[in-house]
């Protein structure tokens, strides 16, 4: 046992090294890409500004140097945790992102929780009795869920709940409570009312996906001998379902839910735009439009880092669920 425990950190360290590699490659691509797209100073100065004024601004932002010098400067600073300041506001890029982060994380956590709580039971139901009308209804619903565009679902929900029924607000975060430096909506009733529609919008498509994954996994596990053996042991159906089936279908569910969670945190842009939710996605879009390179790069670096950590968490979850996965890590 002790040998196993010692092996796990090595694999974590390997992952972190991989992450650094990915971050380096990604930062070069983003740097060069944004450099090619255009000159950020044209967005920052008034159209009447003289060439001298532009040059001064370029010099002040360090844009007069070659792209490689700029990149190396960025890299040198980034090692010390300094990702530069926004061209637009002059605030540190990292601070801008961190300020927006709680709103996004909160939205995504609520949306993902909804999608798992709704998706897994419905998926199991559809998998247990694939021919029942209820199962067919669930599957049809799920097709709608992930083929209808996100923004459209969002607009429809606004129409229904905010415009016609007038029971839920259509935008912003509502009342928040500060927990240390972090402002949270989920601690107030008003916050929940604001959170409901964007979380539902984001969560419906995710739920649709989880339904399909769960159903497929259920259909795969049900004919297994160990399920029949569990029945032959005279276990109660609830035990077979909640332990023998569920534990075996968790791996694909965790995989998909994990990936979707990361995807949503990094790019909840559409939903955040529709509901004017002040999260990171909106910040990213605004920064891309203004060619605010420090913010875009800092954002993507953070997201790569976050996704690597998330994958690590997923792998650790695998080990918790599937005992033979622990063995594989050792080899």
């Amino acid at each position: 046992m002790r040998k196993k425990d010692r092996q796990v950190p090595v694999f974590i360290i390997n992952r972190l090294f991989q992450a650094i590699g990915v971050i380096l490659v990604m930062s070069v691509l983003v740097f060069v890409g944004l450099y090619l797209i255009g000159d950020p100073t044209s967005m920052l100065v008034s159209p009447e500004a003289t060439e001298i004024e532009r040059q001064a601004l370029r010099k002040a932002l360090g844009l007069d140097q070659s792209i490689w010098v700029q990149y190396l400067t960025f890299l040198g600073n980034a090692v010390h945790g300094d990702f530069g300041r926004s061209f637009l506001t002059g605030q540190p890029a990292l601070q801008l992102i961190v300020e927006r982060m709680p709103a996004t994380v909160e939205l995504v956590v609520v949306a993902m929780t909804f999608s798992v709580v709704v998706g897994v039971p419905l998926g199991i139901l559809a998998g247990l009795r694939p021919k029942a009308p209820s199962s067919k209804a669930i599957m049809t619903g799920s097709i709608l869920g992930f083929s209808l565009p996100n923004f459209w679902i969002g607009l429809m929900l606004i129409m229904l709940f905010a415009v016609y029924l007038g029971i839920l607000p259509a935008s912003a975060r509502g009342e928040t409570v500060n927990v240390g430096p972090v402002a949270l909506s989920i601690l107030t009733l008003d916050g929940w009312r604001h959170l409901a529609l964007p979380a539902l919008t984001l969560g419906l498509a995710k739920a649709a996906l989880i339904i399909r994954v769960t159903r497929a996994a259920t259909r795969e596990v049900l004919p297994m001998d160990y399920i029949k053996f569990a029945r032959a042991k005279g276990l109660r159906p609830s035990r077979i379902l909640n332990v023998h089936l569920l534990k075996n279908i968790l791996i694909p569910i965790v995989t998909v839910a994990g990936l979707e969670f990361g995807q949503a945190i990094a790019f909840a842009v559409v939903t955040e735009s529709v509901f004017s939710w002040p999260g990171m996605g909106k910040l990213l879009i605004d920064s891309i439009i203004t060619l605010d390179r420090p913010v875009v790069v800092a954002y993507l670096v953070m997201m790569v880092f976050f996704l690597v950590i998330l994958n690590l968490v997923i792998d650790i979850l695998y080990m918790a669920i599937d005992p033979s996965a622990r063995e594989k890590v050792r080899d």
Binding site: Y226, F229, K247, I321, D322
Partner: peptide, 12 residues
């Protein structure tokens, strides 16, 4: 059952 590699639940 016939195949002991399949009758025990792998995750329990």
């Amino acid at each position: 059952f016939q195949d002991p590699s399949m009758t025990l639940n792998p995750v329990l």
